[in-house]
């Protein structure tokens, strides 16, 4: 065994630590027992390791002694340590129980919260579905109303078109032999009963016109006409008439306004200052035919 081998394989340290195999330990002993260098290294290393162990063993009690007095002073004796360990175990056990209960309570609360959450979700879903249903119904109703409105509008337009057409048709239809009565004025001295004008009109409602010719042109602003019955009662009164190109005044009536009998038409001219002047009186008799 040479020193290179001893150095490379840490033979000295391993020998002192008792880590060499028996045969190798015996060979190393046979070497160093007659080798002052190796023996010297062995002694030095051995003394150093012993010194290290002494220091380590001295520091261990120092570390124990340096435990600060206060909370842990009672850990010095075994009985006190055992007591402390027991108390600590109880505390740990109690803590474990508390933690377990807390966990169980927390789990229950979590389950309850999950359940409530699920209920809310279901309710929300139902309400959402209901709202969707209402919305759908509303849209459907709106569509129905729109459809009905369009239908009504269409009907109205159709009716309007029909009415217009009827009116148009009515207006378009020429009235055959329209009744136009040209009244002759009553002269002074003539009996009011002896009417010179006789209006023969059908008993069914019929429109007719009365025309009176003005005998003189005046500077009247306009004219007004009044019809009185045979008892002097007012039958009709109109104003604002203007003479046509033939210096005649015309007024349209419906046959329902009159009954069989005698009537007096008075024509007045209204001046610019508002004063009216009687221009003529026209008596006439209405005779309704069946």
């Amino acid at each position: 065994m040479d020193h290179k081998y001893i150095d490379e394989l840490d033979i000295v340290d391993r020998y002192l630590m008792g880590k060499l195999p028996v045969d190798e330990s015996a060979r190393f002993e046979e070497h160093f027992v007659d080798c002052s260098d190796c023996t010297d290294r062995l002694e030095t290393t051995k003394a150093f390791v012993e010194g290290l162990r002494l220091v380590a063993s001295e520091r261990a009690p120092e570390a124990r002694i340096n435990i600060p007095k206060g909370r842990f002073w009672y850990l010095r004796s075994r009985k006190a340590f055992a007591l402390a360990a027991g108390v600590l175990s109880l505390v740990v056990l109690a803590s474990a129980v508390l933690v377990f209960n807390q966990i169980r309570r927390s789990r229950a609360e979590a389950d309850q919260a999950r359940s409530v959450s699920a209920q809310w979700e279901r309710r929300y879903e139902e309400e959402h579905q209901a709202a969707s249903s209402v919305d759908a119904k509303h849209q459907e109703t709106e569509r129905e109303l729109t459809r009905q409105l369009n239908q009504l509008q269409a009907e109205i337009e159709k009716q309007e078109r029909t009415g217009i057409a009827h009116q148009y048709d009515g207006s378009k239809q020429p009235q055959i032999n329209p009744l136009i009565f040209d009244l002759v004025s009553a002269r002074g001295g003539e009996s009011s009963s002896a009417s010179t004008n006789e209006l023969i009109i059908p008993r069914s409602p019929t429109s007719f016109s009365i025309t009176v010719a003005l005998e003189e042109e005046g500077s009247y602003k306009d004219y007004r006409m009044t019809i009185l019955g045979d008892h002097g009662q007012l039958i009709w009164k109109g104003s604002g008439f203007k003479p046509n190109r033939y210096n005649a005044l015309s007024a349209g009536f419906n046959s329902t306004l009159f009954r069989d009998g005698d009537y007096l038409l008075t024509v007045e001219g209204v001046a610019g200052d508002g004063n009216a002047s009687v221009l003529g009186k026209y008596s006439f008799r209405v005779v309704k035919t069946p």
């Binding site: 002192l16 007659d34 002052s36 062995l42 002694e43």
Partner: peptide, 10 residues
């Protein structure tokens, strides 16, 4: 002597 001491002390 020195080597023997080491062996025995071990």
């Amino acid at each position: 002597r020195q080597g023997i001491t080491v062996i025995i002390d071990q």
